[in-house]
């Protein structure tokens, strides 16, 4: 008895095995299939899970208890109301580095070539990867939120504002996944993807309003911190979590997130296809 390779029924299956189905549904299905590959792997891979849970817990706890006594920010009842949104933003933006590392790993092991030789939508390779990273980031976010609530952080702005702030953070992290995707596609090894992926995120996240008020920084550094898109998204989400008026920061954060996504997704897709030149 042999299981036949030829589909026998109509429905969501092409009638001929050589006919390549097209359309948005199939793109979504290919993307989801690719995403489940990474989600299954993440579940199995304790190191990744540890990074996704322990590391954010440590960050919240360390910052709140180590710096909490020393730092007071005018306008905030406590340091945790100020810093926890910053840690949210930093952690999930850092989490985007795994997009690049994962892509570099798939490339170095020849798995990307395997996928490129399949009749799937080629774009689903990158869409599936970034989508699975978005889901992982959501998981990480909720772990951090629970720990944040434990150490005294409160959603002063109400649930709607908090939900909006969270969506903003996730949109930003998704945008950064595409920067990392381009890095992962451009480098030659997993090690390079690792260092190239993390290196620039330290200055990006620290020269910002995430942990301290930029007005305490040296004069020459202040404009850098103030115009840093990471500052803008941190300010927007911090205001929303604390029930302050975020002003135009929400709009500008969305513009940044959309802009980064469009530009770097386009560059990544181009890089992905140009490997065949």
């Amino acid at each position: 008895m042999t299981a036949t390779a030829t589909p026998t029924r109509s429905g969501p299956v092409p009638s001929d095995r050589h006919v390549v189905p097209t359309g948005a549904t199939w793109l979504a299905r290919d993307t989801w299939t690719e995403a489940t590959r990474h989600l299954t792997a993440t579940r199995r891979n304790p190191e990744l899970l540890v990074f996704a849970t322990i590391q954010p817990i440590m960050f919240v706890v360390l910052f709140v208890y180590v710096f909490g006594g020393a730092i007071q920010i005018p306008g905030f009842a406590s340091y945790e109301q100020f810093v926890v949104p910053g840690i949210f933003a930093q952690t999930i933006v850092f989490g985007s580095a795994f997009t690049g590392i994962g892509i570099a790993e798939d490339m170095s092991k020849g798995f990307i070539d395997r996928l490129r030789s399949l009749p799937m939508y080629p774009s689903a390779v990158l869409l599936g990867r970034t989508f699975s990273d978005l889901l992982r980031n959501i998981f990480t976010f909720f772990i951090m939120l629970i720990v944040g609530l434990f150490v005294g952080f409160r959603l002063e702005g109400g649930l709607v504002d908090a939900a909006l702030a969270t969506l903003l953070l996730l949109a930003f992290a998704y945008a950064f996944s595409w920067i990392q995707a381009l890095i992962g596609l451009s480098v030659k090894s997993v090690e390079t993807a690792n260092s190239a992926g993390f290196m620039w995120m330290f200055p990006l996240t620290f020269i910002s309003s995430a942990f301290v008020d930029p007005s305490t920084m040296p004069g020459w550094l202040q404009p850098v911190a103030e115009h840093n898109p990471f500052t803008i998204v941190t300010n927007a989400t911090r205001a929303l979590y604390n029930g302050y008026d975020p002003g135009m920061d929400v709009v500008w954060s969305l513009v940044w997130a959309a802009g980064i996504t469009v530009v770097f997704a386009a560059l990544s897709f181009r890089k992905f296809t140009s490997n065949s030149k």
Binding site: V19, T40, A41, G110, F111, R114, P119
Partner: peptide, 18 residues
């Protein structure tokens, strides 16, 4: 063309996490 071919490259292209 991809719907009609199978390719096994020089390196075993398997996802070792699965």
């Amino acid at each position: 063309a991809r719907a009609r071919i199978g390719l096994t490259g020089q390196y075993a292209a398997v996802d070792e996490r699965l």
